[in-house]
Design a binder for these strands. Sequence first.
DNA 1: CTGAAAGCGCTAACAC
DNA 2: GTGTTAGCGCTTTCAG
Lengths: 350, 350
Amino acid sequence: MPEQLRVPGNRPTLEAVAALAGVSRATVSRVVNGGDGVRAHLVDKVRDAVRELGYVPNHAARTLVTRRTGAVAVIIPEPEVRIFSDPFFSRQIRGISRELTAQDTQLVLLLVEDRGDYDRIERYLAGGHVDGALAFSLHTDDPLPEIARRVGMPTVYGGRPGWTTGPGDPCAAYVDADNRGGAREAVRHLLARGRRRVAHIAGPLDQTSAVDRLDGYRDVLVGSDPALVAAGDFTTAGGARAMRELLERRPGLDAVFAANDLMATGALTVLRERGLDVPGDVAVVGFDDTERVAEAADPPLTTVRQDVEGMGRLMARLLLGTLGTPGAVEVPPAPRAVITPTVLVRRASA
Amino acid sequence: MPEQLRVPGNRPTLEAVAALAGVSRATVSRVVNGGDGVRAHLVDKVRDAVRELGYVPNHAARTLVTRRTGAVAVIIPEPEVRIFSDPFFSRQIRGISRELTAQDTQLVLLLVEDRGDYDRIERYLAGGHVDGALAFSLHTDDPLPEIARRVGMPTVYGGRPGWTTGPGDPCAAYVDADNRGGAREAVRHLLARGRRRVAHIAGPLDQTSAVDRLDGYRDVLVGSDPALVAAGDFTTAGGARAMRELLERRPGLDAVFAANDLMATGALTVLRERGLDVPGDVAVVGFDDTERVAEAADPPLTTVRQDVEGMGRLMARLLLGTLGTPGAVEVPPAPRAVITPTVLVRRASA
DNA sequence: CTGAAAGCGCTAACAC
DNA sequence: GTGTTAGCGCTTTCAG
């Protein structure tokens, strides 16, 4: 068996290329990094040598001197189960991945299983493995922002961080959908359809998206009956539970705005069980326009769509933007937020 | 604004720790790397200095000399849509992530969007960013094995690679479920339940898992009617289509073994449409025991379970195993395969 | 425009 | 046991 193949470390170095091309290491380096300011015929010579030897720059050596890794961490709190199975995350990650790839940056996936993992995360971020970090919709007590701040890691959050209202990290940036505006639109739509007793199934209020959607609901329905709001948890089962609660408390309700599609489908099931027609007796609006959930619901769900993949791309772009030109140390001027628009998608449920 | 926070590169080095502790860099290095062979009181001194300075080893520098990155690439062909939304992959990735974390190794996610991406992948693997790679159920014409071989990257595949039968990479290792054995068990179960005309909905035959399951079916039903086998594509829709075909060709069939749960549910839907009772008229067995699919099917699916998360862990363990002790260059003796057992889970459908 | 030389921060022989 | 000394492969002044 050809041991050669498996032996690492015998890859050609700059030195070898330089020798073959008959130039200095510096010149090869220049060519490899764009080749400005090198005479054309030397560039060719070097390029040939590179090809012939199959030279690929050693990443560690480069990072050691440039202090840039060309990698970004994507930190995902795995306990929040959904993550991978939730199309929301997969699409956001796809967006991130696309943008990073386009910018020749690698994606290092950091799954956080439990609280203790944060030590590991901190060491990792501090170890200079990555140039920046992308993190997701955190609960208000998530230790991550504090860690990012402590190790001075440029970080962009997906979803408005809970602590933006408090002290938090002044340098933090985030990308979020216009949850509040979207919620307002949903409720206004319900009112426009003649609904008068519009209930809300809220998400877990330790997540800002849930809070913002509830706020949007309240913006439109100022001073409405508090009994028309039930707490859910963004799951189908939670939505069903909340729907039952609502029907018990206010049997006369004629519309429900659920803070996400999963809960809306849960509500749909309960309404069907009770023999209530949707949208005849009760109109239902969801949020997210989750692939395969909203459309496949029975009846298909009217819902508020957010461009999840676009948000992912934006997160990456924002982060790479703050990283700036290689080597340039740049302090972001202020907390930056990008709020992406939502759009109401009308289907059969409302 | 405190620029300090954002300025990289002013992190303390070994040198600084050594100075503060009053020892040499070598000693600090030893302590940081386990601390054997250093007198206890020096260890303490160094540890204190490390803490005081908040020292974290520079990863690039370490990699440069040790030639180990402490990272592993997970390569995912994203065109095969399913990936993230498919619980199969998410669970496998979770298994991988768990094992890697336990071994203090990072997971670099490489999503492959299209054919052209393979250049990028090759450069990445060749660049020494990672110590090894994990890849998934490839189609027979996938360029990845060739790339891995060319750059000498230790790689473990999830699912038997199609080219194992051909030349391929002799060093390749893979972890796969006992697809063939599981299929046999499924069919035997059907026979034991008195079924005589057992059809099969096959997966796409450019994937070895589909081939192996078909082979298992044929092992038991030697020389059976070829019209009892229909081609599917591992999707629900494909399963439905195949079921219709089968019913048209052989209306008298009394059992179906589908190569995965998704196709089985597609078949279930068609059977229901046709007013056929499951399992009364037609018994159905799936494969995978996919979370939320098999159990939630109507009727709940009898199916062949594979331990997906365990397979993920195994992949990681196998890879890390071949990487061996840091520094030790080790040529794996031969192609290694780990076949994990399957178990038939009996529910209502057969 | 190109080359020589000085490190980046760390580990690993090899001396003491 | 501990310190000294070489580099790992690359970029980047600084001369020429």
